[in-house]
């Protein structure tokens, strides 16, 4: 494990003293990602848990340059930063190299920031865009987003006499991003740190936009215990709910194939947001969810075609 020790030897670019909840997956993703950067970093973040907890005046957890503007505009804000860099570099006003990183949650990516993301991808800015996908609007108190999975109990898709949680499946953000023909797209989990940091390095070296979607546990919103946040990610990967893959210049590669594909219920059982799905009357939802995971897994296997 030489690699990990080297990373730990560098000064962390994201300090303690931030106010994200105990057991939150976001800072784990951020720390792993920043650990493999080689140049000065400028981060843009959308309004959300990470931003409100990492920069509360006069405290900032960032040792990088950091800008937060609003909720919908993470991608357009970082586009401006990167454009400024290109202009000032050309004019000889800066000679440094930089990494430009945008970080937003699923609300800021799948929903309110989708247009800005699309614009950034189409314009081809050299930006790594990381989506911390915790499958809902957690900062405002666990409302459903278009990343919330079928059946999940949230404060806007509550389980009730006539409701069994969210009625629709989550949006295929990877498919949407890939439709922009960007050079590098990957799906990661912070529990698989070696995979995440390898992909981070590739993304940081990509000439043009790259997109990383990370499963990012939220103990508060998922109603899971804080100490199992990484274990949850492993279960998500081992059940093939959250496959680890990358798409380089349109070529799909599966980065991890579980030896035994575990039943989805093993993952769902760890989170009280899915508790109602284990009632006998909701058996069909559970089966639908399993079928949907199976279908997507088969699709990915086909797309990766032995890669």
């Amino acid at each position: 494990m030489g690699h990990i020790k080297e990373l730990a030897g560098k000064e962390g670019l994201f300090t303690g003293g931030h106010r994200l909840c105990a057991g939150c997956g976001i800072p784990v993703v951020v720390r792993q990602f920043l650990a493999v950067t080689e140049h000065p970093v400028i981060v843009a973040a959308g309004t959300g848990c990470l931003q409100v907890a990492s920069a509360i005046y006069p405290y900032t957890a960032w040792r990088t340059g950091f800008i937060h503007s609003a909720f919908a505009n993470t991608a357009s804000t970082i586009s401006g930063v990167e454009a400024a860099y290109k202009a000032l570099k050309r004019k000889g006003l800066t000679d440094k190299e930089f990494h430009f990183i945008a970080i937003a949650g699923d609300g800021g990516t799948y929903d309110i920031g989708l247009q800005a993301l699309s614009g950034m991808l189409e314009r081809g800015h050299r930006v790594v865009y990381i989506c911390n996908d915790n499958e809902g609007y957690m900062n405002t108190g666990v409302q459903a987003s278009s990343a919330t999975p079928l059946g999940a109990d949230t404060t806007t898709t509550p389980v009730g006499a006539r409701s069994k949680g969210k009625e629709r499946e989550r949006k295929d953000i990877i498919g949407i991003v890939l439709a922009h023909n960007v050079p590098y797209v990957a799906q990661v989990s912070p529990a698989h740190w070696h995979d995440l940091t390898s992909k981070a390095k590739k993304a940081l070296k990509t000439e043009g936009p790259s997109f990383i979607n990370s499963l990012t546990p939220c103990p508060r919103g998922w109603r899971s215990e804080t100490h199992i946040s990484m274990e949850l990610c492993r279960l998500a990967v081992d059940t093939c709910y959250w496959p680890l893959f990358e798409v380089e210049e349109g070529v799909w590669r599966l980065n991890y194939r579980p030896r035994i594909k575990r039943p989805l219920a093993d993952y769902l059982r760890t989170q009280a947001r899915f508790k109602h799905l284990f009632l006998p009357e909701n058996k069909d939802i559970l089966e639908n969810l399993q079928a949907s995971v199976d279908r997507q897994w088969e699709q990915i296997l086909k797309l990766c075609d032995g890669n």
């Binding site: 400028i42 843009a44 800008i67 503007s69 609003a70 919908a72 505009n73 991608a75 357009s76 804000t77 970082i78 586009s79 401006g80 930063v81 990167e82 454009a83 400024a84 860099y85 290109k86 202009a87 000032l88 050309r90 004019k91 006003l93 800066t94 247009q115 800005a116 699309s118 614009g119 189409e122 314009r123």
Partner: peptide, 26 residues
């Protein structure tokens, strides 16, 4: 003119990109 011209996808993004650029020092 030696400028980066961003033909963005909305005015919201136009001003957002201006904010990022100006905060960067442009």
């Amino acid at each position: 003119v030696d400028a980066e011209f961003l033909g963005v996808e909305s005015e919201h993004s136009a001003m957002s990109a201006c904010i990022g650029a100006c905060a960067a020092g442009a």
